[in-house]
Amino acid sequence: MTSSAADRVARFVDDLLRGRRPRRFKASPDEAEAMAAAAGLVAARAGADLPDKAALDRIHQRLSARLDESPRIEARFTRRAWLRTFSTAAAAAFVGVALDEVLTRQGPTGPVATGPAVLTPDGGQWRPVAAVTQLPEGHAILVSTGSVDAVVVNDGGQISAVSGICTHLGCRLQPDDADKRLSCPCHQTAFSWSGKVLYYRLKAAPPDLPSIESRVRDGQIELFVV
C-alpha cells in the first residue's frame, strides 16, 4: 500500500523535476500532502518560478482574445460614473496612471531594446570605487561616483560593471547575489549581471543596461566615469 503510494508520488516528482505536466490521478490525503511539499521544493530552486516570455505572451494573447471582445460601452459608463463620484482626487490619480502608461509603453508592441551600449562619458576618467578585496567572487555591489550609479560584479573572478539604474523609469537596482541578477524594486524588471533584460512585466522590453568600462589597478577597482 505504502509502496504504491510512494511510486505514484515518485512519478509525480519525476514529472516536476523534468519540467513536465504531471498526469492526473486520485491521490490519497497523504500522497497529496507529499505532492504539495514536492511542488514547494521544486519552486524553491533558483529562478524556477519565473515564467518565460513565451508563457507570458501566450497568457496575454488569450486574455486579449477573451477580454477585448467585451462591449466597451459598459467600461466607459462605469468610468464616467466613477469620475462623477470622486471628482478632483480621482482625476489627479488618473493623471498619474496615464503618465505611467505613456512612460511605460514606448511602442505598440515588441521590445525597444537596442544593442549593448557602453557608457563612455565625455571628460571621463578612471576613478577607484572599491578595493578588490571588498568584492569577493559571486558578489555584486552598488557604487556611486556622485554622477554615476553603477553595479560592480565579480563573476568567477571576472570584474565588470553596468549602470545601477533601471532603464525603465530610473529606479536604483538591487543586486541579488543568490540569483545573480539585478532587480528593480519599482516594477520588478530583472537584469542579468551583464546587463541583459531577464524579464519584465511591461508592455515593451526596456533596453539592456549600459555597461561601464572597468579595470583593476593596484588592488583597486576603477571605473571610467565622470
Binding site: 519540467g19 519565473l50 508563457a55 490619480a93 496612471v97 520588478q188 512585466r201
Partner: peptide, 28 residues
C-alpha cells in the same frame, strides 16, 4: 493607485500570480 484597464492589471501582476501558482503546482 488605480488601475484603469485590464492591461495595467496584467502587466503589474501576471508574474506575481504565475509565481504564486508555480509554488503550489511545481510545474510551468
Amino acid at each position: 493607485a488605480i488601475y484603469t484597464d485590464w492591461e495595467s492589471v496584467y502587466q503589474d501582476n501576471v508574474v506575481g500570480i504565475y509565481q504564486l501558482a508555480f509554488r503550489r503546482v511545481g510545474n510551468a
